[in-house]
Every structure is written in structure tokens, then in C-alpha cells.
């Protein structure tokens, strides 16, 4: 009885704290979805820029909104790529095209209207295989033939692996399939790629990604090794290390 009375006496306090908690949590949610968010990014696809064990990054959706609205402000059909918006080379967070409950962290390689090479490695493998085939037609060159067979076998295995990877996501894109070596990115789409090309599921597999799938731009790596990230200096960094 005394206990019940006590509860009754404190009821307004409980209600008040529940309300304040609700307001606080939703405010934090609002800040993280509309202003700034620090999130952990894990996975091998962005090595060496982000480690596979998980780096904390600073993400903001504001540059995206700026990019999408700036075309209207300037009255141009295509948004200008500026430092405040989205540029080639920027790292972004996007809803995964293959699973809407997941997000992916990739780099923008191309914007609408650009022509990109779908997969340089695959193009090279195809070209080599073609060369081998043409070499193979020459008669009476046993050793070369054997060698060619061997290399063709390697290429076949490699190609099988690449095809297997591609098969994970059968691709239908607005402008033709991704079997072609080069693709023009349609209006409203971007081309995403992981920095670790040998182990990344990206636009090579699922094709160009609609701009509306992008959720935020990665502004900086917070921990470990804090560092500002902007398209330009990161592109240079990748070029120097490779």
C-alpha cells in the first residue's frame, strides 16, 4: 500500500522524464540525419583509405542537398560540381542497391554524363585472352601453344571468377547492360567504386546508382588518424600510393 502510494506520488516525475527522454532521443536523431553524424565504417572495400577493422567517420547530408538544389538556384540543367557539393573523388554513404537495410561506403568515380570504364581489370583480361587466341592460331609452335594454353587456362579461371562475382547481381541498366567495356552514366546517376578494386562490390556489379540513394558525404576520418577528406587530395593520395 505504501509502495503504491509512493508510485502515485512519483508518477508525474516518471512521466516527465519519459517525455524528456523522448525529446532528447528524437533531437539526436534529427541532428544525425540532417546535420552531422559520426559513424563507424567497416569492411575491406575501402582499403587503404578506411581500415577493414572499422574507422569512425564524420558524415553530413548537407553537401548532397546543396548539390541537388544548386542546379535549381543556378537555373542550369546539370548541377555544378563544387567544393560544397558533390564531386568526383568524394567518399559517400549510400543505401546499398542490393539490400535496402544496409548502407555502403564508396567513392564517386563518375557523375552523370561521364563515360567510365566498367572494370579495367576485366577489360585487360579480355584483351589478353583475345591476344592469346589470335596467337594460338599460328601453326607449329608447340611450346608457345602450350604456354598459350596455360595462360588461357589462367585467364579462363580468372574470368570465371569475375563472371561469378558479376552473376551475384544480374544487371539491367537504363542504357544497356554492363557487359560493355564502357558505360555512359545516365542523368541523375553516379558511378560508385571501392578503393580496394580487387575486393569490392560496387557499380561494376550493380551498375550506376541513382543520386537519391546517396545519404551523406564523408567529410573526415575522426578516429584513428583524424584527417579531413575532400575529393581532390584523396584522389592524389591514391595516385601516389599506387
Amino acid at each position: 500500500m505504501a509502495f503504491a502510494n509512493q508510485i502515485r506520488a512519483y508518477a508525474p516525475l516518471y512521466r516527465r522524464s519519459a517525455i524528456v527522454t523522448l525529446q532528447l532521443l528524437t533531437t539526436l536523431h534529427l541532428i544525425s540525419t540532417d546535420l552531422l553524424e559520426i559513424r563507424m565504417c567497416a569492411g575491406v572495400s575501402m582499403l587503404p583509405t578506411l581500415s577493414h577493422t572499422g574507422d569512425f567517420v564524420l558524415i553530413s547530408p548537407i553537401p548532397l542537398k546543396f548539390h541537388i538544389t544548386s542546379a535549381q538556384l543556378n537555373g542550369t540543367p546539370r548541377p555544378p560540381t563544387s567544393e560544397w557539393g558533390i564531386r568526383r573523388g568524394d567518399v559517400v554513404i549510400a543505401t546499398s542497391p542490393t539490400d535496402p537495410s544496409k548502407t555502403v561506403c564508396k567513392r564517386i568515380l563518375g557523375m552523370e554524363g561521364d563515360i567510365v570504364e566498367v572494370d579495367p581489370a576485366r577489360t585487360k583480361a579480355k584483351r589478353e585472352a583475345k591476344e592469346q587466341r589470335s596467337k594460338n592460331t599460328e601453326p607449329d609452335k608447340r611450346w608457345e601453344e602450350l604456354d598459350a594454353d596455360h595462360r588461357r587456362e589462367i585467364n579462363r579461371v580468372n574470368q570465371a571468377q569475375i563472371d561469378e562475382d558479376a552473376k551475384l547481381v544480374p544487371v539491367f541498366t537504363p542504357r544497356g547492360r554492363l557487359d560493355s567495356e564502357h558505360v555512359r552514366i545516365p542523368k541523375g546517376y553516379v558511378w560508385l567504386a571501392g578503393d580496394n578494386a580487387s575486393n569490392s562490390t560496387d557499380s561494376r556489379a550493380y551498375g550506376p546508382v541513382p543520386m537519391a540513394m546517396l545519404k551523406g558525404k564523408v567529410l573526415a576520418r575522426v578516429w584513428p588518424n583524424p584527417k579531413w577528406m575532400s575529393g581532390d587530395n584523396l584522389m592524389r593520395e591514391v595516385a601516389e600510393t599506387s
Partner: peptide
Amino acid sequence: LNLYKRGDVVTLWSPQNPK
């Protein structure tokens, strides 16, 4: 919650125009 059925009417961003 990712609950979709064939026949559902949905609102979505146009893939060709993020606005």
C-alpha cells in the same frame, strides 16, 4: 521494416531525378 508486396502503391524518388 522493409515490408513490400506486389501490388502495393509506393512513393519513391525518381531514379533519374533526385528532386
